[in-house]
Simulated scan of single mutants.
Amino acid sequence: MSITRLGTERRRMSKIVIHNETIYLCGQVAKDASADIQQQTQTMLDKVDFLLAQAGSDREHILSATIYIKDMQDFANMNEVWDAWVIEGHSPARVCVEASLARPELLVEISVVAAVKT
């Protein structure tokens, strides 16, 4: 059993954990928390792309995604960005729940599980 942890600068978490060809990303949020829901969603997904590349994967290999959204009134606007980002035919299992996030200005957060590209 092999476990690799990347991005362990913070004691409480790793940015990436790889176990048996499965990649787990810690929750990702927007770079600019003052932006609107669409901009926050896009920069959050850009971070997912970056981390997946670091781990040897990409968005075609995402198995599941859990999206936390501050206000379900933003659901349609978030989905507009998500739908443009997801590659047709490679949609992961997904759940989206309304939740309080770590900082009040954050509107959306995502946690991703993906397979390593082979």
Score class of each variant (00 low, 15 high):
Glu109Ile: 01
Met72Thr: 00
Trp82Ile: 13
Val95Leu: 11
Ser64Cys: 03
Val48Met: 04
Asp49His: 06
Val95Ile: 13
Pro104Tyr: 05
Lys70Pro: 02
Tyr68Met: 15
Arg11Leu: 00
Leu107Trp: 00
Tyr24Leu: 05
Asp49Arg: 10
Thr8Leu: 02
Lys31Trp: 03
Cys26Ala: 13
Ile16Leu: 04
Thr41Lys: 03
Arg103Ser: 02
Cys96Met: 06
Val95Tyr: 13
Thr8Glu: 11
Ala33Trp: 08
Lys15Pro: 00
Met78Asp: 05
Ala33Thr: 08
Thr66Arg: 02
Leu106Asp: 09
Ser64Trp: 07
Ile16His: 04
Ile62Gly: 13
Arg11Met: 00
Lys15Thr: 00
Val86Pro: 06
Val17Tyr: 00
Cys96Glu: 02
Gln40Arg: 09
Val97Arg: 09
Ala99Thr: 03
Gly27Cys: 09
Arg94Leu: 10
Leu101Ile: 07
Met1Cys: 07
Thr8Ala: 06
Leu45Phe: 09
Ile23Leu: 12
Trp82Val: 15
Gly7Asn: 03
Ala114Glu: 08
Thr66Tyr: 00
Thr118Ser: 13
Ala30Ile: 04
Ile23Ala: 11
Ala65His: 14
Leu107Gly: 00
Pro92Val: 08
Thr22Glu: 12
Asn20Ile: 04
Met13Tyr: 15
Ala84Tyr: 11
Cys26Lys: 03
Met72Pro: 00
Asn20Val: 02
Met1Leu: 04
Arg12Pro: 04
